[in-house]
């Protein structure tokens, strides 16, 4: 019962969704959409587990005075403030009936000042990391790495005016070697070939894994038998 019923549920749900794309008749045709809503709802219930876990971890750190416990207070206070302000729509003009993200509400204020700025800044760290990764990774150590380097280098140059000036003098017959043209060609031919093969491979991996899940061959997500 502890293993069989879940396997049966997975099987039925999985098969029903596959059938749904071939059968436009009710109840199948609405399943795809309805089940995504079901999934979202289950994920919201699970928030209680996740949020509870977050509070527990940081609560433990604070009570045990473990390393960096003071920062855990910041997390707990930030979490609870945002949660209470949002869940009860406290503060700001719209009140309980308005949109939670309405302009002028406290929730929106915290969102704009903390969430958005931290998010955008974390995201922008990529500009630095993309540079340090290029420096480290693009070296002609092996044949494969050389190809990686050459392709990246041509595209990099092709995206700046440098590429235009470097080979702009080429005669008509050799125009295909003009760096912007060359980088377009790399993108639309070899890059495309690689992308296509990767996509076909991934599709097969996902089809096969899905099948194993539906048929109960892959069941590590269920944990152990019995207990």
């Amino acid at each position: 019962m502890r293993v069989q019923i879940p396997l049966i549920i997975t099987f039925i749900v999985g098969i029903a969704l596959i059938v749904a794309i071939f059968v436009p008749h009710d109840p199948f045709h609405r399943m795809n959409e309805e089940f995504s809503v079901y999934f979202d709802l289950i994920a919201v219930f699970a928030f209680i587990l996740g949020g509870g876990n977050l509070l527990k971890i940081h609560g433990n750190r604070i009570s045990r005075r473990s390393r960096d416990w003071k920062y855990s207070i910041v997390t707990v206070v930030g979490f609870l403030t945002m949660l209470i302000v949002g869940a009860f729509k406290i503060g700001g003009p719209p009140g309980l009936t308005g949109d939670v993200t309405a302009e002028g509400s406290w929730f929106k204020f915290m969102y704009d000042s903390v969430f958005v700025s931290c998010q955008a800044t974390m995201f922008s760290l990529l500009a630095f990391f993309v540079a340090s990764a290029s420096y480290r990774a693009f070296r002609a150590k092996t044949k494969e790495a050389t190809l990686l380097l050459i392709a990246a280098f041509i595209i990099l140059i092709g995206r700046t005016p440098l590429g235009h000036y470097m080979t702009g003098w080429l005669p008509q017959q050799l125009e295909f070697l003009h760096i912007p043209n060359l980088s377009n060609w790399i993108l639309s031919i070899p890059n495309m070939a690689g992308q296509r093969a990767i996509m076909i491979g991934i599709a097969l991996g996902i089809i096969s894994t899905s099948l194993k899940l539906i048929l109960g061959i892959e069941r590590s997500y269920l944990g152990g038998e019995g207990k």
Binding site: A133, G201, I202, S208, K212
Partner: peptide
């Protein structure tokens, strides 16, 4: 198996399972 992120892992990690290899590895 995210095609857009593979280049970054290939460049920055010691080993990368490319696309289908992820599923192969799990099997």
């Amino acid at each position: 198996a995210m095609p857009t992120q593979l280049p970054f892992f290939v460049a920055a990690c010691d080993y990368t399972l490319i696309g289908e290899e992820l599923f192969a590895a799990s099997a």
